[in-house]
Amino acid sequence: MTGFKDAVKSGMDEYLVELKTKLEGLTEAELYWHATLDSNSIAWLVWHMARVEDGWINSTIAGGESVWDSGGWAGRTGVTYDSGGYGQTAEEARSMPVVDVGALIDYYDAVRAAAFKVIDDMSDEDLSQSFTRGKRSVTWSWILGHVLVEEAQHLGQVGFIRGMIRGLNG
């Protein structure tokens, strides 16, 4: 029985492939542009998207180290934030160091390879397992849907920012 699991993976494939397309040809200035003081930049969004998928699937579900930690990606990317971005202030988001976005994508590819192994190994029974943080409890089933929704939102933001900078077909 793989139909719905494959649908989840297909959605995940789609947002990562689309992300790479939307980054094509962008300059450093474009990647780090903040539309307003409170708006995130494309570079920050790419880093955050990868950290989010890594956290939810490779840490929360798989129960192990994130790929960020096990692969030494802070050093390899040059991004030294101590969180995945959630809860940062606008100032913190604006202070992301200028790094090679190719390294961020290499990190994301490594996250994805690990995440798909985790999902491939998941059975229907596993999906009822839950994760509790504070007062909040979610099932693994919910987490998979949530990852798709959260990541694709950020992809949409990347596309929107690119559109603001370069116009409709830029």
Binding site: S10, G11, E14, Y15, V149, E151, A152, L155, G156, F160
Partner: peptide
């Protein structure tokens, strides 16, 4: 199967744009 994943990807992208 592709369509199901795509609907989530597409609608969520637009949600992200609205939030932005």
């Amino acid at each position: 199967g592709w369509i199901l994943g795509h609907i989530l990807a597409e609608e969520s992208q637009h949600l992200g744009q609205v939030a932005y």
